[in-house]
């Protein structure tokens, strides 16, 4: 996979990344350090009285795949939910494409190009596969997409996800878990987002489908979609990722290029065991 080739560039730019806010150079300027597409600073989130996220910070730069790993309950899913605006009590700063979005409603994130595939997939029962896909682009109508784009996108997505192609008219909830996961990802891609947050996409899915899915992530990255991934399957995640953050106790305890963590089984064992 192409990840290792990318690592050199990414680790070299890691230092620059810290000051990139000052430089603010456009991406087209070459392989120079890029302004983070998503910057999370000092993020805090609560469920009732439970203080789940306690000052979590991370950055994702354009065209990267960044993975959050960590034990169950470390706060990975909550991080994605908070970035998406789905946790009611939240504080800190989330900047996406230059705008502070932390306290904006979830639908605004969609319109800025941020997509989210939740852990539970959230395929809408009662709707067909095609209707679930249409739901992914409806809101973009008029702004980012026309009615004609809708059919074109469904066709393109069906080509990318051949498993969905034969099932367009089937009630989505009757498909296998893996197929539903493909649909959840496809639905998130319908409106051609700039960045996708993916929560545990491999959970409960046949290994052969998992590999197919991760190949899809690399293809998405190549097509210019930035990815923030939460994944328990650390080995697979490291294969496709540029950088990794380890989350523990609601904040980041370690971050490095994926290659570096791959070469450090001790760190892996300490933080990534389930």
């Amino acid at each position: 996979m192409s990840a290792s080739r990318e690592d050199g560039r990414v680790s070299a730019s890691l230092e620059d990344g810290r000051v990139s806010g000052l430089l603010d150079r456009p991406r087209a300027g070459g392989p120079a350090p890029a302004t983070p597409l998503l910057a999370v600073e000092d993020l805090a989130a609560w469920y009732g009285h439970s203080h789940i996220l306690q000052g979590l910070s991370l950055e994702v730069r354009p065209d990267e795949i960044v993975t959050l790993v960590g034990r169950n309950g470390a706060g990975k899913t909550t991080t994605l939910k908070t970035i998406m605006g789905l946790v009611a009590k939240r504080a800190g700063r989330v900047t996406f494409a230059g705008a502070d979005i932390l306290h904006r409603p979830p639908h605004e994130r969609f319109h800025r190009g941020l997509a989210y595939v939740p852990e539970e997939r959230r395929i809408v029962p009662g709707l067909t596969v095609e209707e679930n896909l249409r739901l992914g682009i409806l809101a973009a109508r008029g702004a980012r997409a026309t009615r004609r784009d809708e059919a074109r996108r469904i066709e393109a997505i069906a080509e990318t996800f051949p498993r969905l192609k034969q099932r367009l008219k089937q009630e989505a909830i009757t498909m296998s878990g893996g197929e539903q996961q493909m649909l959840a990802i496809a639905r998130a891609l319908m409106a051609e987002p700039v960045m996708v947050l993916l929560d545990e996409p491999s959970e409960g899915i046949m290994p052969i489908l998992v590999e197919e899915m991760f190949e899809q992530f690399v293809a998405m990255k190549r097509a210019g979609t930035t990815i923030l991934l939460v994944e328990q399957n650390v080995e697979l995640a490291l294969d496709v990722s540029d950088r990794v953050y380890i989350v523990d106790g609601g904040s980041v305890v370690y971050h490095a290029p994926a290659a570096e963590l791959r070469a450090d089984p001790e760190i892996q064992a300490r933080y990534c065991a389930v």
Partner: peptide, 19 residues
């Protein structure tokens, strides 16, 4: 379609850009 989806899962409808 939005009505049918919103009746089942209002949150995912929001995530998909619908106010």
């Amino acid at each position: 379609l939005v009505i049918r989806a919103g009746a089942r899962d209002p949150q995912i409808v929001q995530v998909l850009g619908i106010e």
